[in-house]
Design a protein around this nucleic acid. Sequence first.
DNA 1: AAAGAAATCAACCGCCATTTG
DNA 2: ACAAATGGCGGTTGATTTCTT
Length: 515
Amino acid sequence: MGRHSCCYKQKLRKGLWSPEEDEKLLNYITKHGHGCWSSVPKLAGLQRCGKSCRLRWINYLRPDLKRGPFSQQEENLIVELHAVLGNRWSQIAAQLPGRTDNEIKNLWNSCIKKKLRQRGIDPSTHKPLSEVENDHKEKLSMTNKSNEKTSVGSNELNLVDAVTNSKPLTATTIALEGYPLEVSSNSKITTTTNSNSSNLTTPPTQEFFLDRSVGTSHESSTTSCRSSDLVGYFSFHQQSNYGCDMGLGINQNNTTFSFINHNSTSSSSEMAPVPELISSNMTPPTVNNLPISMSSSSISIFATTPPRVKPSISLPSDHHQSPNSTVSCDVNGVHNWEAATGTFTSTTTNNGAGSNSNGSCSSSMELQSNGSFFDNATVFPWGVLQPAETLKSDNKDHHHQVQVHVHPLESGDPEDIKWSEYLHSSFLLGANSASTATTAQHNQTSQPAMYNDVKPQTHFLSNRSSITSSTASWHHHQNQHQHQHQHQHQHQHQQASEIYSKDLQRLAVAFGQAL
DNA sequence: AAAGAAATCAACCGCCATTTG
DNA sequence: ACAAATGGCGGTTGATTTCTT
């Protein structure tokens, strides 16, 4: 297996891409598609290797990129997906349309990891740090014992291996794989790693199916979603035991995750180390024949077995709470970025979140919470909801408001906006959203509508214009563009929120108190 | 205001799996 | 069947930006 040929070639440029190079690549791929990446640089007139071109396209030039800070919901989704998938960034990114694996990876390494640690959660295992330490001690002791005892029960090995081999043995996986799980009153979770291996049932082989194919066709049925209830986390909750009405199996964005029990009798040795996330049209989803419905933000398992839950990790919001860099083209009834090209002309100059374009992750509020993360801001699927609460974090010249949901329809927080965007596009702009979905199909077929807020062509086009006009500091120019877009997005979100909150209210009426 | 620290992010590196000849 | 070419992925690096003192 040879190394990539381009690695040996001489005279190839490396490092940051210039606007001219961007333009060349963009023009070429726009006209011809990328085809064979290795031939792209030659045909496009670039002194780059194909890999570099591919990377540049995927991570930056692609028209469907959603730029700007990650929303709280996205962050939480990443955490949850990471709990299931581990460092499979590309798979995680696949669930966050408009986001790249690189972007998510960076966010994880620079920000989320830290947050989780500050909350006492081990980012690699998603377990409480104290528990990880205990596991580590147990492992050490078991290692010592293994010198004495050569054979150990396979189930015990599974558990230990999962912990020690960086398998993302999370509360999720613990619960799903049948390990006893306890939820204490302060909502920390502990596993009952009873030394009696009989308590550790052999987990079945599970595959983590993702059905996204219905993204555009069933939108009108995805009514759920009290955004407050779903503030960006998966919740494995047992309806009967916890009486939590969140989610209730309503699939709000048409993304259906299912744990399919392929072979309930499979031995532990056959168990996939990590449930594999694949795309599937299979329905209905089941876990051990139990119906599951899982939205992007919640999973409902209607089980009759004792509750096995995982903590919902709702990261405290900071800058990411700023309105997502959503293209609110549909505000104008224009639902694709090509058509919306002309809509981004104003340059807002407020001192809002856009001034913090780099997405700094520090926030005095969250950093000083000293474990209050679970106390203050978190939503738990098993119903430890607290009344709506707004945490404010003074961050220089602007405030981030962390809405701890409950009554989303009455608020204008960004989550509401996102949901209302989704609902709006689903219910009120069905045709347009379909066209948007078609546009998005370029890279990912059938995106959930809520993720159709892709990077606008305007970004590109404005960048392209900047390419031709830029002279000295193109990086600075790009930053300015990003700021400008954030301002624009903010402004449009304000408009959108007004419109959509009305729509949501109508929906709430239409669906009774379901929302 | 300046210097250092920390955070962010784009891009590279090297490995692996698949495809192609 | 084999080796090279290619695409893709995750880990890592280093430049830049932002924050803190």
